[in-house]
């Protein structure tokens, strides 16, 4: 490789690295700004936009109830079906409830819900804010001395946080029910027994670690999508690009955070 070729390569790698760092910096800045405005709005001056927050809760969360329920019931069913032969080999078919409930409450309830919500809420936020940037609405807000983070991002953070955690509770229960359906109708188990085994196998920790994770996932979804939406450049094409990027990046960050948290809980809790 010639010297200029090497220099070009280094420039490219450096440029990519610089871009990535700038991106992380921007995301971090938005996070701090949003936390500041949330704290300010909640504690010092109660000026959280309640109407807007409720509206976003319905739009981003309540409307996702059917899809989350449907997906999670299938997840519970798949788990039960996949695990039944293995458990049967060990003569432990009555443990289907235990395995399904722990897998769903600790892992699949929060994770699958977060992935579905990334597509449902994250994409919607990125596209909406991106369109507002293109239509000069964000500039109009700023020049009317209305801070876009306080006005737009904070309500979405609160809405996304509350609804994601609530949807995860729903997802946990529905997932366990899905496993129960297979236990009853395919494995010929006793539903009452399934219910009791589920309750007995679950510790509060299983439930709480799942909820903590779901809150972190909600933050990732809402911050990435808000950041992508607010940094749109270049018209309709830019909005499409931001939407795609926000979904891909949020899913990646959710799984990375999941891995980190699971490791943490494994060793320390």
């Amino acid at each position: 490789m010639s010297t200029t070729g090497l220099v070009r390569l280094l420039e490219r790698v450096g440029g990519q690295g610089e871009g990535f760092l700038a991106y992380l910096g921007g995301l971090g800045y938005l996070t701090l700004d949003a936390l500041k405005h949330t704290a300010l709005g909640l504690v010092i001056r109660p000026r959280i936009k309640i109407d807007e927050t409720l509206f976003q809760m319905v739009r981003l969360g309540v409307r996702a109830v059917p899809i989350i329920a449907l997906v999670q019931i299938f997840v519970g069913m798949i788990l039960a079906l996949q695990l039944a032969p293995v458990l049967a080999d060990y003569g432990q078919l009555d443990k289907v409830a235990t395995v399904v409930s722990i897998a769903v409450f600790r892992e699949l309830g929060p994770l699958i819900s977060a992935v579905v919500l990334t597509g449902f809420a994250g994409a919607a936020i990125a596209a909406e804010l991106g369109t507002m940037v293109v239509g000069e609405e964000i500039a109009a807000l700023r020049t009317s001395a209305i801070h876009p983070v306080r006005f737009l991002v904070v309500p979405r953070i609160i809405a996304c946080l509350l609804t994601t955690v609530a949807l995860t509770v729903l997802a946990d229960i529905v997932g366990a029910v899905g496993g129960g359906l297979i236990d009853r109708w395919v494995l010929q188990g006793d539903s009452w027994q399934y219910y009791h085994t589920t309750i007995e196998s679950l510790a509060l920790k299983d439930f709480l670690t799942g909820l903590i994770k779901s809150a972190v996932f909600a933050f990732i979804i809402v911050l990435v999508s808000c950041y992508e939406g607010l940094s749109v450049t270049g018209g309709a094409e830019g909005v499409g690009r931001a939407t795609t990027r926000s979904v891909v990046l949020a899913i990646f960050l959710i799984i990375a955070a999941d891995c980190a948290f699971t490791t943490f809980f494994y060793f320390f809790w």
């Binding site: 000069e136 609405e137 500039a139 109009a140 807000l141 700023r142 020049t143 009317s144 001395a145 801070h147």
Partner: peptide, 20 residues
């Protein structure tokens, strides 16, 4: 800057109405 901005008004080319 926010204090200054509260004293002026601006009409954007597209109107820039809040669509929601």
């Amino acid at each position: 800057l926010d204090k200054i901005r509260q004293r002026f008004g601006i009409l954007f080319q597209s109107g820039a109405l809040y669509s929601s």
